[in-house]
Design a protein around this nucleic acid. Structure first.
Lengths: 200, 200
DNA sequence: AAGGTTTGGAACCAATCGGTACAAAACACA
DNA sequence: TGTGTTTTGTACCGATTGGTTCCAAACCTT
């Protein structure tokens, strides 16, 4: 009954998220955004509201896709013990940096720094994601059943901050040695309450 | 022999650094920058080159003032053992967030994420600062003389990533409990090779 | 007080910002 | 093949971007 749209809104959203992820909100000009999404202004403003709202949508998307994936991995018993899963996550991050040269970092982490996020709806979304990650670490630790709730919570938070630290360092390119050392330190954190996940 | 300038370039630089620190490069428009520095366009372009170069100068300034201060603190035997100094640094950061509501975070950490930095001169400056911090942690650990060089290096890097992690979390407001847990985890990292710096 | 210099502020610049309006193009249905 | 509806691309909008130019004001030296 009408002309069909020539682009996949879902794909376009992915491209938009990719740009915001890479350069942040302010640095992503509308022109760059349109180029990344491979659509023109008309289509953009017909399909989406404006730059602000597509940024917020990108955050939601990151939560739904990436964070959920990470949470699922951390909660998947098939991937080994809780500690092994946590270490596996760190290893994957380090590997992405050193092998694929991934300098994107973590959208959540980047957005936490990006002040464009502050004050608006973004703040709540970000804190929710932080909480999801913390909980996922916590549950993984609980799965091993070697720590009481208090220690598990504490360890989860230590791991969380180490995780963000690694991703900050990864943003400017992480040497193999640096990454390995960071991970070994996480092993050390996890060693509390049981001999688990030791590699070296 | 001529009209003296009505502002203190040093103070103005401080204000500029403060703004870049807070909102990053791109988000700091020239107008905001001038307002923060309390000078007008004419004075600005007479005293400094342009926005880009004053940003780089801000990074240098941060290195000279803040990072140097941190390095000095970490290397000052009067502040206690090496481990105590490291924990003291973390405590000061946490305290600034929860007491003074400091949401600035760490300029170095913020700039590592801020993509405006990438590709240019900034990259080198940032990595130099990261390296200074790592070395300061390393030396503090060496002062206690309980770890061999290899373990000290590894621990320094673990502490460094925990430090950045804390500063990322601090940017969006850190709960007292979260901060305390993160610090207790650093204590745990430092506990290797000797019972030091324990508080709880 | 006069002369020489430098600063400070406003006017001005092209380019780009995010966003809107609208007409032509492309389809589904009849 | 026409008609109606939606998408698409482009021209356009005022505001703001970083940056330059230029002159009057302010000062030091003599």
């Amino acid at each position: 009954m009408a002309r069909p749209r020539e682009f996949d809104p879902d794909e376009a959203m992915d491209k938009a998220m990719g740009l915001f992820w890479d350069v942040g909100y302010e640095e992503a000009s509308l022109t760059e955004l349109l180029a990344a999404m491979e659509i023109t202004k008309g289509s953009f403003y017909k399909a989406f509201q404006d730059k602000q709202s597509i940024y917020l949508a990108s955050l939601d998307r990151y939560n739904d896709k990436v964070i959920s994936g990470t949470v699922a991995y951390l909660g998947n018993p098939a991937e080994g013990s809780g500690r092994a899963r946590i270490l596996g996550l760190f290893a994957k991050v380090a590997q992405a940096v050193e092998l694929d040269g991934d300098r994107l970092g973590c959208f959540l982490c980047n957005a936490l720094i990006d002040k464009a996020a502050e004050g608006g709806e973004a703040e709540g979304k970000l804190q929710a994601m932080v909480h999801r990650l913390e909980s996922a670490f916590y549950k993984a630790l609980q799965d091993d059943g070697q720590l009481n709730a208090r220690d598990a919570r504490e360890t989860a938070r230590g791991v969380l901050s180490a995780y963000f630290g690694l991703r900050v360092l990864g943003r400017s390119g992480l040497s193999k040695e640096m990454a390995a050392d960071c991970i070994r330190q996480v092993e050390w954190l996890l060693a509390r309450g049981g001999r688990a996940g030791q590699t070296a």
